[in-house]
Structure formats: C-alpha cells, structure tokens
Amino acid sequence: MALADALVAAGSRQSRRVATTTLLVAFLVAASLVGLGVGQFPIAPSRVIAILGQAITDPAAPLAVDARILLLVRLPRLVLAILAGAGLAICGGALQCVFRNPLVAPQILGISPGAAFGGALAIFLGISGVGLLGLSFACGLGALVLVGWIARIDGRTETVTVLLGGLVVGSLFSALVSLIQFVADPNGSLPAIVYWLMGSFASATWEQAGLAAPGLVTGSSVLLALRFRLNILSLDENEARSLGAHPERERWLVFGLVAIVVASSVAVSGIIGWVGLIIPHISRLIVGPDQRVALPVTALIGASFLVVTDTIARTATTAEIPLGVLTAIVGAPIFALLLRRHFREREA
C-alpha cells in the first residue's frame, strides 16, 4: 500500500516535471519570438517566423530591411542573451551545490571582478574584439587561481577559505577597476568602460556571439553533464569522499568551468549580476533540490529571464537601460523575498 502510494507520488512527480519543462521551453520560445519582433522597428510574429524560416531554407537569398534587422541585429543579441542567461544561472546553481550554501553566486569567487578588470583594462588600452575577450578571460582565470592559492592551506582547501579568498580577490580587482576609471580619459574611454561595466547586450553582433559562444556552450554543457555528481558534492565532504567522489579535485573542475562561462559572458556583455544568485533558487522552489532536474530547469529559466529583461531593457525607453542595472532592480526584490522565505522555512 505504502509502496504503491510512493510509486503514484513518484509518477505524478515525474509527469509534473515533464509538464514544467514543456511549459518552460514553450515560454522561452514565445519570449524569443516576441523579443525578436518588438523594438523601434516592429516586426509581426508571423513575419518573424517567415524570416527565420527563409534564413534556414534559403540562406543565400538577399535580405529585406526587416530581415536584416532581425537576422543581423536582434538574433545575435537573442542568442547571446539565451546562452549567457542559461550559463550564468547554471554556474550559480553549481556553485551553490559545491559550497553547500544557497547564497553563493559567480561573483563570489572573484571571477566576475577579475574579468571586469581585464575588460576595463582592454578598453582603456583601446583593445577590442578577441583582445578584450582574451584579456577579461585571462584576468577572470587569474582571479580564480589567486583565490585557489589563498585558499589552499597545507594541501587542503576548505570552502570557507575559498569564500574569503574570493572576497579578498574580488575587492582587489574592484579597486583596480576603480583605479582604471580614475585614470581613464573622461572624454574617451571612461564612458565606454562605465557603460560596459553596467552590463548590456547592446553591442551584440554575430562576431561577438561567435567569440563568447564556445566558452558559454562548453562550460554550461559540461556543468550540466556533472549534475548527478553535483548532488553528491553538496553533501558533507567526508560523505562525498566515502561515496567515491573526489570533492577537492571536482570542486576545482567546477570552478574552472564557471570561470570559462563567466569570463566569456563578461567579455561580451559586461557584468550581469543576480542571474546566478536568484534563478537557481526559483528553480529549486519549482522542482526541488535534485540537480538532475533542477539544473536543466535553472538553465531554461535563466535563458528566459535574460531574454525578457533584455527585451524590456531595449524597448521600455527610447534610450536603452543597461541590462545589469535592470537585472539588479528586478533581482534585488526577488532575492529579498527568497531570503525571508528561506529563513522562515528554517524556523518552521
């Protein structure tokens, strides 16, 4: 009887998961179609689908004006928003597992400030494109290596020393970013640096998407493949070890993958905060703590979240609102609510 009940419960949970996933995919597709259509030059949804269909079936055909706007301006931007949203959210979910702490986000490891410093330095030096990506990537990874060096004491790395190391390195790179802003030319590179740091997909092109996509896709896919192991890494370290995991080694694998995703995203769109912090929470509220389900759902919600906020960012006002500012304005209240809920549940 009890077993039958458990099986029924498991069955309904399974079908609920399928329904949730289908709904989320449908929402992402709908949000993408709307996002491609709206803007200063509105394109009807049927026309959006027609243009996309033609681009696939007959890529060599000459493009009309609306098709050019859609395929060369809005589509690369949409692709970047989907990849960065999914990637940043996955990173947050993975880090929250390995730190066994739901309040951890990619910023915490100092990777974002490191990558931001690299990017700001590149803009200051007049470097763009691959050079900017490379420099922000190198500084993001450099920040991570520095955190690792600080946190590794007597051949062991405790999560708390990693958090503290991330705090120290993050503050250091933030200060260095301020220093660059201080010395930058107020009529030249300073506005570019400030605007870039606020986070935006406004400058998205296929070239930029091509730069960021390999890192975003590789990092996210490998993290997704690790999702069962992430469940185990969220256990006590000795328990995880006794079950056959190598917590120390595998944690650094996760950190490295997060660095690849975050640095790629920062390089093309500046710092877009809050996605990695709140999206994994929302996902856990919907489907529970099992990362085998929660991580793919996190990716879907993260992608939808950035597609929707980016659409709002570029259409709400005539001048574009920086995306990073918008995600913070939306993210902070959501996070405050989640925090209150989290501690209320703990007491209960």
Partner: peptide, 16 residues
Amino acid sequence: EMVVMGRCARVGLFGQ
C-alpha cells in the same frame, strides 16, 4: 534519491 547516491562510484563523473 539519497540512497542512490551510494552508487556514485559506479555511475561515474558524467553519468546518471
């Protein structure tokens, strides 16, 4: 789901 984590070593790093 907690008990199946005992199979971690057999499942492998990227397995389910």
